[in-house]
Design a protein around this nucleic acid. Structure first.
Length: 160
DNA sequence: GCCAACGTTGGC
DNA sequence: GCCAACGTTGGC
């Protein structure tokens, strides 16, 4: 099983939006980057990933599970869609998406700043300067460390 | 608002 | 195939 990180701007599609979706499940559409798309193509059912909020308050907001493997992203065919790509057609789809289900929404999100300098996260893609990949792999070790930090944050907020 | 980093486009 | 120009991302 592999681990991932899904990035989204809060005002575009947040963890709350995913929570409000039917069965807390949604397609991760709108990816228009080949590297990110290729990562999605290698995802398998049951893979886990972090839901990351980019933007004003960068933070890890929860954990999602891949519930459907990659299939054509039909939003690319819709001229009304923000991510419309005329080069992609139903006959020759260029972009893919996976479906993810919210497994856990962090009551206390883990700020990006809290990840800096943590032992074991030195090589994490998210923390690399200039990293813009919206879908990226996370190593099992990194996933365990970050999940642990997130759990600590939950406990802290309960005790407060 | 600033700026660095990156991907894409398009001329040649 | 190269590379400059441009637009976008995203942290700070």
């Amino acid at each position: 099983m592999n681990y991932w990180l899904f990035k989204s701007e809060t005002d575009c599609f947040s963890v709350d939006d995913l929570a409000a979706s039917p069965d807390a499940t949604s397609s991760w559409d709108g990816v228009r980057n080949y590297q990110a798309r290729n990562f999605m193509r290698t995802m398998r059912k049951g893979d886990l990933g972090f839901f990351y909020h980019s933007g004003k308050n960068p933070e890890i907001a929860g954990i999602v599970e891949v519930v459907r493997e990659s299939h054509p992203d039909h939003t690319a065919w819709d001229p009304e869609n923000d991510h419309y790509d005329p080069a992609s057609t139903p006959d020759a789809p260029r972009w893919d998406m996976v479906d993810v289900r919210l497994v856990q929404r962090f009551v206390t999100p883990l700020p990006r700043a809290a990840l800096k300098g943590v032992a074991g996260l030195e090589g994490m893609e998210l923390l690399k300067k200039g990293s813009r990949l919206s879908v990226q792999p996370v190593t099992p070790e990194e996933f365990a460390i970050v999940r642990h930090l997130a759990e600590q944050a939950q406990n802290t907020s309960e005790g407060a």
